[in-house]
């Protein structure tokens, strides 16, 4: 089993604030890797470093053995690494089907395909994935009119349409109605097992991570705190302190 993403000794600071310090982690192929940590521990910063939103100060980030820490966002995306946003981002003025169609993979696309209409096969694939996330009945609505949770599902479907090798999900269950979370977890799992997409997930909701992930990394104050199976991490003294300690301190004051 090989690692799709290898992060080695990455540090990143903004002004004087150190957001990530000397972080190394691996995202193995075909698995679900979780990234947890209290608020402000540098999870999203690490995501942004990986997908190319800002330069890193030190270290190296490799995707399938290729150094990507100095590439631009679209180049990295075309290698097959996609991300979803914490604040969901979709093309809010288009209907859902169009949102899906424009998310076709752009990896091998040439100049000639720019002006081609979409084929029946593509349409069918879009419909199938919308069905997969449960938005088929809403497919002709303007996506900006959907509820927040539905937009999140649409963003997930768009990512699947792109056939990425690895998908970085930033809090996929935040803002989703609790009754729908189990369905979402099931779909995430199926994305890995059926579609073969490696997942790398930031998540706040502990039960979700424990349920979903094969491996978990925990960040605190910009450093890597613990790493292991969900059970190991869950029972790690330092992780409990990082989470609960913050709470206790707050209650004390």
């Amino acid at each position: 089993m090989s690692n799709l993403i290898e992060v080695r000794n990455v540090s990143k600071s903004f002004g004087g604030v150190v957001a990530n310090r000397d972080i190394s982690l691996d995202v193995p192929e075909g698995r679900v890797t979780g990234l947890i940590g209290p608020n402000g521990s540098g999870k999203t910063t690490l995501f942004n470093s990986i997908v190319g939103y800002h330069p890193i100060d030190e270290g190296s980030i490799q995707f399938e053995g290729q150094e990507i820490s100095d590439m631009m966002v679209p180049e990295i995306a075309r290698l097959g690494m996609l991300r979803t946003f914490q604040q969901t981002r979709i093309y809010s003025k288009m209907d859902c089907v169009k949102n899906m169609l424009i998310s076709l993979p752009h990896r091998t696309e040439g100049y000639s395909s720019m002006f081609k209409p979409y084929g029946a096969e593509t349409m069918e694939k879009a419909d199938r994935l919308l069905e997969f996330v449960g938005l088929y009945s809403k497919r002709h609505l303007i996506s900006g009119d959907l509820s927040f949770g539905q937009q999140k599902l649409l963003e997930f479907a768009m990512a699947l349409m792109n056939e990425p090798k690895v998908l970085l999900l930033d809090e996929p269950t935040a803002g989703i109605n609790p009754t729908l979370i189990n369905g979402l977890i099931d779909r995430l799992r199926r994305a890995t097992t059926e579609l073969g997409i490696t997942l790398f997930v930031i998540e706040h909701n502990m039960p979700v991570v424990m349920n979903l992930a094969d491996n978990v990394y925990c960040l605190a104050n910009g450093r890597l705190l613990a790493h292991g199976t969900p059970d190991e991490v869950q029972n790690d003294e330092r992780v409990i302190n990082a989470y609960l300690g913050g709470h206790l301190e707050m209650e004390d004051h």
Partner: peptide
């Protein structure tokens, strides 16, 4: 978003 999806 378009860049993040890899559109040229």
């Amino acid at each position: 978003k378009a860049e993040a999806m890899g559109i040229h």
